[in-house]
Design a binder for these strands. Structure first.
Lengths: 251, 251
DNA sequence: ACCGGTAATTGGTATTACCACTTTTCTGAA
DNA sequence: TTCAGAAAAGTGGTAATACCAATTACCGGT
């Protein structure tokens, strides 16, 4: 790769991220044409199929339109909203999770069954195992949170939480969010989840809410920290604003 | 192609559509694994790169998760992102709104702009007018709540609240919820919304959260009351359970 | 200046090969 | 018999190449 690549993901995902970054930076205005696939392949030193996969990822997100025999043209810039679902940033999704999942945890504490608790406890152990592997997935983490949402016995609550996780997965910074934000603090993550489980087992709504808030606050902090590492100066200002915003909202 | 193809699009798009159809038809439940890329290529008589492109399209849409060396696993079924769930009851939706919109209001109180306040105040007046007509709609009510969600400046929060209102509209008891639950108390509804607005104008998160909780608690009470009128004896027991559940969760 | 046809460019698809990772199966030792 | 470790099979990831189809640009003739 001529350019820097960050994640341990697949090449096409890294390349798609790079292209999205260049789009966001304004390298290719709306309506302009991206370089030819062969040129991109040569520039990034990858094969053309890989370039095609990355461009298809952009196409599915509604960022570019591919015209046969002509090229890939920019439809909209990342962040502008008309494409459903793909405009929420990792911070926004996590903030929404902080607000919603905390309340869901409180409700779940009043509704949780012994079967739910058994399932959640099993997932707790899976999370511990999962976190031992630096390249592990976050499937157990996702299942843990969804199990809590399901324990509310409220379909609307569950679907809302489920949608947030779908948004999270589609977020451009999803990988970053998962990687960096967690690798920094493995032990606390397990402890935080344990605290949530214990509050649920105690059927204590207030404790469950508090434990969930603590956990997701830590996730946000890790996310902001990870973002800071690669942020420009202007991004730093936005982060500072977010930090105070979050502090006020949770006060 | 062994199977029928419809569009004049590119092969990968046709194939992606086919796979989504099969997903929707239930051929591959959530969590199950799709056939191997080579098998799909043989079955549809296309090349493996084409299959890969189609799967990447599904992956970007958050439908499947691809695990290296293992396969592509179904994350969610198509349509579950915004397709109205027919199984969510009016009570569930309102309960979810109580949990989520209260937190959204608290966040909005820290983010609301003067323009937002002007819009919300205008909608407040519309709500008052709307409630004078016993056969009026609830458009202003909906716009009021969505404006608050938008004032959070968080796309994920707004979309979640928006989805709840979509669920509400598709709920079987939607009409009942709106009619009965409101006709019983016209004046309080306006007062409750006014309290929410004033808390937002004061930029007071705690007050905004409390005002929203008060309002939606009243909606739930009205909903339960309306339900009681037509409920059988067994329904009464369920309602009593819900009442205590709700009381505990908000305590 | 206009028109039309040809050639170059570009995306679409197929084929093949090899690598890395995962999962299963088999084998040999305890 | 059991089970841990190794081997093998399965699967996705990427590369390289070739050819086709559609578009676009160019250039010649009129």
């Amino acid at each position: 790769m001529t350019q820097e690549k960050q994640g341990n993901d697949r090449l096409y995902q890294d390349l798609a991220r790079l292209l999205i970054e260049e789009l966001a930076r304004g390298d290719y205005p709306v309506g302009s044409r991206l370089p030819a696939e062969r040129d991109l392949a040569a520039r990034f030193n990858v094969s053309r199929p890989t370039v095609r996969e990355a461009i298809i990822a952009l196409e599915v997100q509604g960022l570019v339109e591919v015209r046969i025999g002509s090229g890939a043209y920019v439809l909209r810039l990342p962040g502008s909203e008309d494409a459903p679902g793909f405009d929420a940033t990792a911070f926004e999704v996590t903030e929404a999770r902080l607000l919603f999942e905390s309340e869901a945890a409180a409700l779940a504490a009043t509704q949780v069954t012994d079967e739910d608790l058994a399932e959640i406890e099993a997932l707790l152990h899976q999370i511990a195992v999962e976190n031992l592997d630096p390249n592990g997935t976050d499937r157990a983490d996702r299942a843990f949170h969804l199990a809590i949402a399901r324990a509310t016995r409220n379909t609307a609550v569950f679907k809302a939480v489920e949608n947030l996780w779908a948004l999270r997965a589609s977020s451009p910074e999803a990988a970053l969010m998962h990687e960096k934000a967690r690798s920094a603090n493995i032990k606390p993550v397990v402890e935080e989840h344990t605290a949530i489980f214990q509050a649920l087992r105690a059927r204590d709504p207030a404790a469950a809410r508090a434990a969930m808030r603590t956990h997701l606050s830590a996730v946000i902090e890790g996310l902001l920290f990870a973002t800071e590492e690669r942020a420009l100066e202007e991004a730093r200002r936005a982060i500072a604003a977010k930090r105070t915003r979050y502090a006020r909202a949770t006060a």
